[in-house]
Design a protein around this nucleic acid. Structure first.
Lengths: 196, 196
DNA sequence: GTGTTACGGTAACACTCGTTACGGAACAGG
DNA sequence: CCTGTTCCGTAACGAGTGTTACCGTAACAC
C-alpha cells in the first residue's frame, strides 16, 4: 500500500507543482524543469512518474477537475435548499479570493494549452459538459415547475456568467472585487427568478 | 507615403499571421518561425519589423482590439434603438461563426500569454475596462431611468456572460450552437428587463 | 552610370526544450 | 557480505527557440 500511496502522492505533488507554475509563470514557462523545481525534485523524478510532458499535464488537469468536483459536491450536499445549493455552487466558480483566483488562472492556462493537445481538449469538453449538466440539474431543482427548455437556457446563462466572471477577475482582480462579483451573481439569480 | 504604408501593411500582415498561428496551433507553437511561415516570409523580415517577439505579440494584440472596436462602433451606430445597439454589441462578442470563434480562441491565447507578459496584461486590462464601460453606457441608454448601481450590475452580468459564452463555445463548438447562444442572450436581456 | 541606402533573406549564435541513457544509492533476500 | 531490483539524480543528446550578424540586391538621388 505504501508503495502505491507514495506513487500517487508524488503524482499529486507534481500536479500541484504544475498548477503552481501555470498560475505564477504562465503556459509559456510551463516546462518539465520548472515543474520539477516547483516540486523540489529533478526532472528525473518527473520523467520517471510520467511517460512524457503531455501525460503530466493531463494528470494535473484531471486531478484539478476531481478536486473542484469534490468541493462542489460538498457544497451541494450541505446546502439547506435547492436554491441555496445553486447559489453556493455558482459562487465557488467565481474568482473571489486568492485560491479561486489562482484556480481560474490555471483553468485558463489549461484551456489555452488544449488548443494543440487532443487529450486536454477532450478532457476539457467532458468536464465542461458535466459541469453544465450539474447546473441544469440544480436549476431544475430550484425551479421545479419550469419546462426543460427554460431550465436549460437559464442554466447556460448562469454557467457562461460564472465562467466569464472568473476569467475577467483572474486577469484584473482590482477591477472586480469579490463583493461586486457576488452582487452580480445575486442580481442575475434574482433576474431569472431563482433567488432564495 | 508608400513607404510607411508598406510598413504598416506588413505589420498588419504579420499580426494576422500571429492570430492565425494562435488560433490554429495554440500558444505553445506561437514561435517567430511559425509566424514567419504563416506570413509567407522569413524570420529576417519579422525581426526587422519588430525589435523582439514581445513587441510582435503586443502589436497583434493591439490591432485585434482596434479591429473589434471598429466593428462594435459600426454596429452601435447603425442600430435603430438603444436596446438594439446593446443586443447587437453583445451578440458580436459571442462565438457563433468561424470568424468570431477564431477570435475567441485568439483572445484566450493572448490572455494566457499575458500571465508572464507585463505589456500584454496591462493592454488586456485597458481593453477590458473600456469594453465594460461601453456596455455600461449602452445599458444606461437602454434603461434611462435606472440608478447607476443597477446599470453597473446588469452591465457586469452581460459582459461576464458574453465573455464566458465565447470561451465555452470556442472550446466546444458542437455543444454550443449559435442558435442556443442567441437564445440565451435574449433570455438574459429579457430577464433583466432589457428586451427590445 | 554610380554611390548610397534601406530592405530582407541566410546562417549562425547561445540557449532552453523534451527526452533518454547511465550510474549510484537504498533496500530486500539469502 | 553479496546480488538483484527499484528508485531517481546527473548528464547528455538532438531539436527547436529568440536573437544577431552578415551580405546580396533592388531602388533611389544625382
Amino acid at each position: 500500500m505504501s508503495r502505491s500511496a507514495d506513487r500517487s502522492a508524488q503524482g499529486e505533488a507534481l500536479s500541484r507543482a504544475v498548477w503552481s507554475v501555470l498560475a505564477e509563470q504562465g503556459l509559456e514557462r510551463l516546462t518539465v524543469r520548472a515543474v520539477a523545481a516547483a516540486a523540489g525534485c529533478t526532472t528525473g523524478l518527473v520523467m520517471h512518474r510520467f511517460p512524457n510532458r503531455q501525460a503530466l499535464l493531463l494528470h494535473a488537469r484531471q486531478l484539478l477537475h476531481e478536486i473542484t468536483r469534490n468541493r462542489v459536491e460538498e457544497l451541494e450536499a450541505s446546502a439547506l435548499t435547492p436554491r441555496a445549493a445553486l447559489r453556493a455552487v455558482l459562487r465557488q466558480g467565481l474568482a473571489t479570493d486568492p485560491q479561486t483566483r489562482q484556480e481560474a488562472v490555471v483553468w485558463m492556462g489549461f484551456l489555452a494549452a488544449a488548443v494543440s493537445d487532443e487529450g486536454l481538449i477532450s478532457e476539457h469538453r467532458r468536464n465542461n459538459r458535466a459541469w453544465r449538466t450539474r447546473v441544469e440539474r440544480l436549476t431544475a431543482a430550484a425551479a421545479p415547475d419550469w419546462p426543460a427548455e427554460r431550465v436549460a437556457t437559464a442554466a447556460l446563462a448562469l454557467v457562461a456568467m460564472a465562467e466569464g466572471m472568473a476569467a475577467l477577475a483572474a486577469a484584473d482582480p482590482e477591477a472586480f472585487p469579490a463583493a461586486e462579483q457576488e452582487r452580480m451573481l445575486d442580481a442575475t439569480l434574482a433576474a431569472y427568478g431563482l433567488s432564495e
